[in-house]
Simulated scan of single mutants.
Amino acid sequence: MRKVLATLLLLLLALTACGEATTGRTAGDSGILDSVEVSGGSDDEAPTVEFDTPLDVTGPAVKTVVEGDGAEIEANQQITFRAVFLNTEDGASVGDTYSEGEPQALPVDDSLKEQDAELYEVLIGTKVGAQIAYTRPMEAVEGQPQSAPQQLLVLKVLSAEDPPPAPPEPEVLAPEDVQKLEDEGQLATFTFGEDGAPQVNVPDREPSEDLVVKVLEEGAGEVVTEADTITANYSGWRWEDGENFDSSYSRGEPADFPLNGVIQGWTEGLSGQKVGSKVMLEIPALWAYGDPAPQGAPAGALVFYVEIVAKAAAQ
């Protein structure tokens, strides 16, 4: 009997050891990630990642390759992470985010579930501290050129918390409050070169949480509505540093915009204005492109100079 019990104990220990090696959560074609090994590194230093090359990536593949020891990630939390990127053909490093400022944030919500179901599936229930290997065919990654190398991403989950409360929805600042800012010299002002292109002077204050609209010169044309397409000359700058990110003046001609198809700050600020008007818009981030903003778009609060040249009713 003792011999049988000893044999069963050894088998149990062996099964437990095997289970610990394969308990990582998986989704998609995760078998291609079985050779991925992660060693070393810390929350601020990229680990070493090794795997059998090349990886045959034919579909999404996600696998927890190193278990964490923190709390389990729950739906609708927001994680922070750092990541390394490797070429799936030869395992060479393509880059990492360990040396780039603050960790990146990712909401584990219905939006992620819809856009990247496999990653969402693996994150839910995985523990903070885990290292997760992830890849999908490069042609399925939005915004990536076809010439970009196929990549394996290994991300380390640093934290998982309930997301911060959403900031209050902006409003259009009342005319008397706009006048108060002007009286105090706290509105953005403009100077103009010989070519007529504006340059901005951003006041030394925090941007408004609401949309600031100042009509610099009122036009004599028709009133613009949200359903109209307008032709406008404009320039836009980041409030934070006064960097000019876009200008019709540099292209030498005005541009056409449907007012129901632009950032909300333009829709709210230009609807009700007259053709021929010249308008200053100080737009909070929530009514601009956000903060952080999508790739290629300016982040944070923005300031615009807009001259409404013409309008055409929407078709």
Rank of each mutant, 00 (worst) to 15 (best):
T64H: 00
A310Y: 07
A188P: 15
D110S: 14
D246Y: 08
Y98K: 07
P170N: 06
I230W: 08
T189A: 05
E50L: 13
I283A: 06
G19C: 11
D116E: 12
G143S: 04
D246G: 13
E218Q: 14
V57W: 11
P164C: 01
S248A: 11
S147A: 13
G129F: 02
G300S: 09
A310Q: 10
P284C: 02
V94R: 11
V275L: 08
P165F: 00
I79P: 02
F192H: 12
S271P: 08
S147P: 02
E121Q: 14
T80N: 00
Q186A: 14
N201Q: 13
V94F: 10
V36R: 04
E67Q: 11
S39D: 15
Q315T: 09
D96S: 12
G129V: 06
Y120C: 09
T22G: 01
A130R: 01
A166R: 10
V202P: 03
I73H: 02
G28Y: 04
D177N: 13
V4G: 01
E218Y: 07
L11A: 15
Q295G: 02
S111I: 09
E209D: 15
G24W: 01
G91D: 12
R82S: 00
G272V: 13
T58C: 06
W237F: 02
F245Q: 03
I124S: 10
P292N: 07
W237N: 06
V306W: 12
K311H: 11
Q315R: 10
A312C: 02
T225G: 14
V108K: 01
V306H: 12
S147N: 07
I73K: 00
V262F: 09
V303T: 15
L86G: 10
P254W: 00
L155V: 00
